[in-house]
Simulated scan of single mutants.
Amino acid sequence: MSRDTRSPAPDPAPRRALLRTAANPEPGLDYLVILRAPLSTGAAVEMRYVPDREVLEAACLAAYLEALPGPDEAGPEALAAILLGDLLNELLPRWVRIIVTPPLLGELSQSIVMEDRRPGWDNPALLARLAPL
């Protein structure tokens, strides 16, 4: 019988508190927000979302990204899941897609894509404008 020797996940509240939001200036309009940023680990993240009542204040992003677990603590899949969970919890978007691209491993490139949408929300015309994965 194997035992799980991983330490418990840290409380996400302090990290999530770094995500500041503002009122959406056009809450009745579906539009796309795209944020891209490099991580100190050499990875990169891209966050795409359709806001509902709130938008993310882009100025808070650097401090938030620094508070994310490092590569020794979380692999790229776990990092994408953390980003997705934090945005869903703090921003409550209509639709969100997270892309984490770790540094190249020799010739190998990798991207992790996670997506979620609010039940009942759909805007095929808007989402069709996104480049295919």
Rank of each mutant, 00 (worst) to 15 (best):
L83E: 06
L84G: 08
W95K: 00
L79K: 03
T21Q: 02
L88W: 06
A63Y: 07
S40K: 00
T101V: 08
E26C: 09
V100G: 03
A62E: 12
L29P: 07
P38N: 01
P124K: 02
E73H: 10
E77H: 09
G70M: 09
A23C: 11
R129G: 11
L68P: 02
R53G: 09
P103S: 03
L130W: 10
Y49A: 10
G70Y: 09
V45N: 00
D122S: 14
E77I: 09
I34H: 04
P8W: 13
I82W: 12
L105Q: 12
L83F: 07
P93H: 02
Y31S: 02
R94D: 00
P69I: 05
L79E: 03
E66T: 01
I98W: 09
D72K: 09
E77F: 14
D72C: 10
L39T: 06
E73I: 09
L127V: 09
A128V: 06
P27R: 13
L105Y: 11
P38Y: 06
P38D: 04
G106D: 02
N89T: 11
W121T: 02
R36W: 05
L32Q: 09
Y64G: 06
L87W: 03
A43W: 08
E54Q: 15
E57F: 15
S111I: 13
Q110L: 15
A58I: 13
A62H: 11
I82T: 10
I99P: 13
Y49G: 05
E90C: 15
A22E: 08
V113Q: 10
P93Y: 05
G42Q: 05
P132Y: 11
E73A: 15
G106L: 03
M1Y: 15
L133S: 08
L92S: 11
W95Y: 07
L61V: 13
Q110E: 07
D52G: 13
P69R: 10
E54R: 15
S2N: 08
S40Q: 10
N89L: 06
A59Y: 01
V45M: 14
A17G: 07
I98Y: 00
P102R: 05
A63V: 05
G85F: 12
D11G: 07
P8D: 12
L18Y: 15
D72Q: 08
E107R: 15
S111L: 14
A81L: 00
G42E: 02
P14L: 03
L126P: 00
P8C: 15
A62W: 12
I112H: 04
L35P: 13
Y64T: 00
P38H: 12
T21S: 08
G106F: 02
S109W: 13
A125S: 06
D52C: 12
R15M: 05
A17Y: 08
P76T: 11
S40T: 09
L127A: 07
L19A: 07
C60F: 08
